[in-house]
């Protein structure tokens, strides 16, 4: 039962990531693309954690934490670049 739920959830996250990639390619403004990248990072965290539940291994949660930190730093740096034209002033 849990394996069926995990398979269904993997398909749903795959569709979600495809929708994010659509917004990333299409997005009219730069802020749309940043938002799509941020959501893509969060969805990939969820996908990695799903893998961690399926294999009962603790390694995947460290990877998820690293993706979370990198995603936040990337979003903050891109927004800072749009706001002030410079990442490190």
């Amino acid at each position: 039962m849990l394996s069926f739920a995990i398979a269904a959830a993997t398909v749903m996250f795959g569709i979600a990531i495809a929708l994010n990639l659509y917004r990333l390619a299409r997005g009219p403004s730069r802020a749309d693309r940043i938002l799509a990248l941020d959501t893509l990072a969060i969805n990939s965290i969820a996908l990695v954690m799903l893998r961690g539940i399926a294999t009962e291994s603790a390694v995947y949660f460290d990877a998820a934490l690293v993706i979370a930190m990198m995603g936040f730093v990337g979003t903050a740096a891109l927004c800072k670049f749009i706001l002030s034209g410079d990442v490190i002033e």
Binding site: M1, L2, F4, A5, I6, A8, A9, M12, F13, I15, A16, I17, L19, N20, Y22, R23, L35, A36, T39, I42, N43, A46, L50, I53
Partner: peptide
């Protein structure tokens, strides 16, 4: 299983909203 499906449904709805 219910929590896993609930989380996946929320993430899918958020991405549909984004698109």
């Amino acid at each position: 299983s219910l929590l896993v499906l609930l989380g996946a449904a929320f993430a899918l709805l958020g991405s549909v909203g984004l698109a």
